[in-house]
Design a binder for these strands. Structure first.
Lengths: 327, 327
DNA sequence: TTGAAAGCGATACCAA
DNA sequence: TTGGTATCGCTTTCAA
């Protein structure tokens, strides 16, 4: 494998000069640059960033940990994140932690060992040990998809409790008096639907028929979810689903059972992914700017890496209820 | 930042011993291991894999380049790939090349600079310069989503030309005599729909009304696609769409225009993603085992990294036509 | 504008 | 079972 020294020898200069041609060509005379470039082309030299990073203490690597990229929520976010990072010359180390985030501890070790210049994490809940390790890493860290009163470093997201509350109030405002929910067993989803149920109960509604499914969710779980709700005595009213996939499944099952929507049941989703936004007029949902989260997270990271300061540790990107009650 | 030497000093042993405790604990006496572990915990030591990789010439990093992860085709593949790699102790460096693969050259440099132990690429067409660089990297490489008679190293995928041919023959067999297509302007999609058109024309069918959309595709492009087909004189018959998203959009537009499916038009998709598989009985599609591609690619890589030999350079995972003509 | 020397933090290899 | 030494390929720093 060709090294910097090989190129230097061929070009008749020192290794340092080659390094400069690669990293700060403006500090080298034009003719030397030309000479070195020729040698680089001839040898097919590929720099070794491991050595470079070790020496300079800078990897140009941003690590990202999300539970899964199956499903368009996180993948859209990652796409916009990469686009922004790529432009700034950073690459992405992707870690998939799964649901529940059992692998997070191990993953974190593996990732910190690579000395990324920055880190993007999903969620704001980490073990005390992990929090400590994160702080000791002394790199900019953005926690996404949630808010926290004491983020490890920075946070870009929205309040899942606020979502649950808003949905409950929205549906109450529509006049519904019978409620159910199909929710995923993941930390943030749980926060949404538990708050939803709580607000409803505070308004004298009971029971709120509940069905919990594993994460990540899919259409089948939604279909099954409605069946279980019905088995549990739910006959009509409003159903909050913790994801669009679940909501879509509920709609399908309703259709299969001949239930009218929103006549018999009203369905509320979460995410506003393409499928829910464009194909299902009977489904209302909660819109999240997932591209915005990625872009914003990148911006926070890059600002700090550039030596700047990010105003405020947390950024609430908010959400919106998309109403699509009428067909 | 704590180093191996710091830990060694605290534990009263040499750096090498600490290194062994971390990498091959079985070669160190139990008491020494305990002593060292204590020192590691106390210092919160995080190994520096940059230095380790530089010294050992092994990064435990697999680089993956795909056009995009928006859309479930590639993301499902990546998910299964990571799962398999993670289990074997590898991490993933993700590169998004975009459509068309304009960034591929630059991305490749950036990625090879990190000296991954293996590489997964999308597609089999690379510039001569890139092919040369790939070979010179001397690492196992798997090209996925397509087949090639002369892969750079290994290939796991299926023939897009065969898909186009199979679809054309399937629809001809169903008795259709008027044809159209809505296809993405990406290399592999183009291969599918051009073959489709070619086979039809060889069977005396003309015209095949064609509409080309940019990649990546979405539902809106499908809706717009059908409108344009109709504007171009297409009134009834079979439509092949180069992705499920397009096909779904075509169905929606058909519904909006009051066209019956499959009465007036038959719609053929590609991908068999969840949405097409579970929600659209009127849509036939081409099923690809995208999880299988990821799993298999990982297997090829890991076998080679383990010193083994992969029998055969190319692996055709095939495809299947999923018939869902009747509602 | 260029170069020489000294690390960066680990592992390989050989010796004890 | 343990330790010493050379080395991996680059950048930093300082001097010319």
């Amino acid at each position: 494998m060709t090294t910097l020294a090989d190129v230097a020898k061929l070009a008749g200069v020192s290794a340092m000069t080659v390094s400069r041609v690669l990293n700060r060509p403006d500090t080298v005379s034009a003719e030397t640059v030309a000479e070195v470039r020729k040698a680089i082309d001839k040898t097919g030299y590929v720099p070794n960033l491991l050595a470079g990073a070790l020496a300079s203490n800078k990897t140009n690597l941003i690590a990202v940990i999300v539970p899964t990229i199956t499903g368009s929520i996180f993948s859209a976010c990652i796409q916009s994140l990469t686009d922004a990072l790529d432009e700034a010359g950073y690459q992405m180390l992707l870690g998939l932690s799964g649901y529940p985030a059992a692998r997070e501890g191990r993953l974190l070790t593996a990732i910190l060992s690579r000395r990324p210049d920055g880190l993007v994490l999903t969620g704001t809940s980490h073990s005390p040990r992990d929090r400590r390790r994160l702080k000791e890493a002394r790199i900019p860290i953005v926690e996404i998809w949630d808010l926290s009163h004491r983020p490890v470093d920075m946070a870009v997201g929205f309040s899942h409790a606020a979502v649950g509350k808003a949905v409950a109030e929205f549906l109450l405002g529509k006049g519904y008096r019978r409620f159910a929910m199909v929710g995923a067993d993941d930390e943030r989803a749980r926060l949404r639907w538990m708050t939803y149920s709580q607000v409803l109960q505070n308004n004298g509604i009971r029971p709120v028929v509940e069905v919990v499914t594993p994460a990540p969710t899919n259409l089948w779980m939604g279909r099954d979810g409605l069946s279980r709700l019905i088995a549990d005595g739910f006959r009509d009213g409003a159903i909050f689903c913790s994801s669009d996939a679940l909501a879509h499944g509920v709609l399908l099952e309703a259709q299969a059972r001949g239930l009218s929507v929103p006549g018999d049941i009203a369905v509320m989703g979460f995410g506003d992914t393409d499928i829910a936004a464009y194909t299902v007029p009977a489904l209302s949902t909660v819109r999240i700017d997932r591209f915005g989260i990625g872009r914003h997270a990148a911006e926070c990271l890059l600002t700090r890496l550039g030596g700047g300061t990010v105003p405020g540790k947390t950024c609430d990107v908010g959400f919106a209820i998309i109403e699509r009650d009428s067909t």
